Amino acid sequence: MPERPIRLFGDPVLKTVSTPVEQIDDRVRALVDDLLDSVRMPGRAGVAASQIGVNLRAFSYNVDGEVGYILNPEIVEVSGDKELIDEGCLSVPGLWHKTPRHPFARVRGIDLDGNEMELSGTGLMAQALQHETDHLDGLLYLDRLEKAERRVAMRQVRESDWF
């Protein structure tokens, strides 16, 4: 399947808490294929199902040449003091802002066979795990910004040509 169009800031699906995957069927397998195809595009570290308009708890990632997915991810561990990291989002194109993120994150979920799996990492992987899980919880990185930075970001959104 080709990559799916990315939903942009303002689309209600991006502010909706995603429903857990309860049954792994052909629809969920097709979703994972779409997520993997969508994340393989240049410059993408992750794509959440909500970003392609599907309200299910799943995301794909593409970090340091490793491409994969996880269903029903939940953050089970973060560590280290939050650091301000330049962050952007496919759903908020062209904007980058200093976002507080933990330097380590671990998520737990399942694969397409229903087997429990974990993903963890530091650096870009930690950032992606936190960012994509936020999407599934109905949050955008803009929601994590410190107050002054958020004011600037929201002005930039309003002035953007895509909003």
Rank of each mutant, 00 (worst) to 15 (best):
D143N: 13
E116H: 15
G53M: 14
R44W: 15
H102E: 04
E87M: 11
R44Y: 12
V107Y: 03
G121H: 03
V76L: 00
Q51A: 07
V63Q: 05
L136C: 10
I6A: 07
A30N: 15
L136H: 01
N72G: 03
G43I: 08
V152S: 11
G138Y: 06
L8T: 04
G94M: 07
G43R: 08
H131K: 10
L112S: 12
L95R: 07
L84V: 09
V47P: 03
R101L: 06
W96M: 12
C89P: 01
D137N: 11
E66I: 13
G109Y: 01
D34M: 10
V21W: 01
S60A: 15
N55G: 00
D134T: 06
F163T: 07
E87W: 10
R155T: 13
V28A: 06
R57E: 04
A30I: 14
V32T: 04
M1G: 13
D143V: 10
Q156C: 05
M1I: 15
S91W: 02
L14C: 02
R151I: 15
D26K: 10
A49G: 07
D143Y: 10
F163C: 04
R108H: 09
L71H: 08
C89F: 00
V47A: 08
L31M: 10
D134K: 07
L129A: 09
D143I: 12
S60Y: 01
R7N: 09
L36C: 08
G43K: 05
G65W: 02
F104H: 09
V67Q: 10
H131V: 04
D34C: 13
L14H: 02
R44P: 10
A153S: 07
G10V: 03
E83V: 10
G68W: 00
L140V: 02
E77N: 10
L71E: 07
L8K: 09
D111T: 09
L136E: 03
R7C: 12
G43A: 08
A30F: 12
V76H: 02
W162I: 03
P73E: 07
I24Y: 01
G121M: 04
V92L: 06
G88Q: 01
T16A: 13
R158A: 15
L14V: 12
H135A: 09
P12V: 06
P100S: 13
L36S: 08
L129D: 03
P20S: 06
N55S: 12
D25Y: 10
L31N: 07
